[in-house]
Amino acid sequence: MNDMRLTERAVDSKDVKIAARKVQVFYGETHAIKDVDVDIDDKTVTAFIGPSGCGKSTFLRCINRMNDTIDVARVEGDIHLDGEDIYNPKVDPVQLRAKVGMVFQKPNPFPKSIYDNVAYGPKIHGLAKNKAELDEIVERALRRGAIWDEVKDRLQEPGTGLSGGQQQRLCIARAVATEPEVLLMDEPCSALDPIATAQVEELIDELKQNYSVVIVTHSMQQAARVSQKTAFFHLGYLVEYGETGQIFTNPKDSRTESYITGRIG
């Protein structure tokens, strides 16, 4: 909304967290992602925008190897996290996903208590030695998810009983509870009303202090509001990648301009 000051938004040059080179994704015969090169910075919010079916979610799911769960999906090319190839056969996707958390489009809390939702990740990764430590981790995660005050009195109630916005923040808390280094968000606000969206966006802004956040969004306003860097995908290609201010005010590619001004998409 108030994307008037975009050009003034400073982007400090930061370390590269994720480096992707010549990434190709195939779904069976379909070539969904073509030759994507991108460097994602640490402690930055990077937004992926583009029309439906352009491959932005697919690319996002490559970063924590969620595409592995789809039988027909095949990924080629290199993606490096802190200089390590995540598609190296030695890499166990389970360990990778502990480092690269994910928040999904639809809030998907486990049908368990709020406490168990958040505690599940730390438990399976053995992050807590005892109950007290686990309690602490859960509280910290829920605070970071900006939902602690709303749920602290009813931690044993089912997570599915919360409102949509609360559920999504619970899912974010669940994702940060395992202390990831990267947080992937696949249209986290598409199922939320504007108030919940604002809360989640505020949260994303805080999260970038500690994490590298990658967010896929359909809302260009949202991309402009929360991100420092923006990548525009179209028909499986990464068309343009740069600082958010530049992409929205002075796109280099004509396709980006068309999309931003609403002529394609």
Partner: peptide
């Protein structure tokens, strides 16, 4: 069982069996 539950579990780093 909705696939979102599986994705959620895999997303926090649970193994397939977990």
């Amino acid at each position: 069982v909705p696939p979102s539950i599986r994705e959620a579990a895999l997303g926090v780093g649970a193994s397939k069996m977990q």
